[in-house]
């Protein structure tokens, strides 16, 4: 990609995501109907002037649901990513600066986290929860869980980066000038680690969008009547698996297209490679 083309792509991505975010924030005004409103006389309808993207199996306006789903998925995935990266940074920094027991314990915890059967654990956690959690609470919790799971990989990367920085020439040189360890860490080490942490964050966002989709597939995450990208993707499941005439109901794929394009835009805007 030439530089000019790349700039244009980034510009387009930013514009697209901004529009999406604004539409999602203003969902209550943009969406023509309430997302949970059931038009039971027109179930599984094709797009029309009344329902721009048709209706789902319960007669709910797919366009309205998609906008509300975007609010949930696109705005909370970054929150989960932030949580996991904050956890990862804390653990990574602690593990890099504390040698010995604490560091080993932390990295051991990261290894365990990476190898746990999370699906089972998530199911268990969900079944232990109070039943009357509101859809928003259950959603927030799902993202919190995702964030709590997602820390391990980034923690390892951040720890490695910090350890490397700690023995770099400029850090030794700064200490040679008599600066305190904490000052060296805050002013000399951390700023250099920032790009690494940022890269972890931006590469986590699309991962969390898709993870939520997968959780919804399992009946976790967003529950009725709320919609998320995940639950909307789930709608396609039967159509895809059974392989009916897909062209006749192309509109069912609108959520998938939106998720795909958004994740693409995110990766264009924030390439996951570490910028130096």
């Amino acid at each position: 990609m030439t530089a000019a083309l790349e700039r244009r792509a980034r510009l387009a991505s930013a514009a697209f995501l901004a529009t999406l975010a604004i539409a999602a924030l203003a969902a209550d005004w943009v969406a023509p109907y309430q997302p949970e409103e059931q038009f039971r006389e027109t179930i599984a309808a094709a797009p029309s002037s009344r329902f721009w993207l048709g209706t789902d199996d319960l007669g709910r306006d797919r366009f309205s649901r998609l906008i509300h789903a975007t609010r949930i998925s696109l705005l909370i995935a970054p929150a989960a990513a932030l949580l996991s990266v904050v956890l990862a940074a804390s653990a990574g920094i602690a593990a890099a600066t504390r040698t010995g027991l604490i560091g080993n314990l932390l990295m051991g915890a990261a290894d365990i986290t990476l190898s746990l059967p999370w699906l089972l654990l998530l199911l268990t956690v969900r079944s232990l929860l109070p039943l009357d959690v509101t859809p928003w609470a259950s959603l927030t919790l799902t993202f919190a869980l995702l964030g709590a799971i997602g820390w391990a990989g980034p923690a390892r990367v951040i720890r490695a980066a910090i350890r490397e920085l700690l023995v770099s020439d400029f850090v030794i040189s700064a200490r040679g000038r008599g600066l305190s360890k904490s000052r060296v860490f805050l002013c000399h080490v951390l700023p250099s680690a920032r790009p690494v942490v940022a890269a972890q964050f931006w590469s986590a966002v699309p991962v969390f969008v898709l993870a939520e989709a997968n959780l919804s597939f399992l009946g976790l995450g967003v529950t009725e009547p709320a919609a998320s990208w995940g639950t909307m993707l789930k709608e396609m499941e039967t159509v895809l698996a059974v392989g009916g005439n897909l062209l006749n109901q192309y509109w069912v794929f609108a959520p998938a297209a939106l998720v795909f394009v958004s994740v693409l835009c995110l990766t264009i805007l924030f390439p996951s490679r570490i910028s130096t």
């Binding site: 199911l123 969900r126 079944s127 959690v133 509101t134 859809p135 529950t223 009725e224 009547p225």
Partner: peptide
């Protein structure tokens, strides 16, 4: 009404 889908063993429990 809050809908809580549970996996089968949890439901039976």
């Amino acid at each position: 009404v809050t809908i809580a889908p549970l996996d089968f063993p949890a439901l039976i429990g």
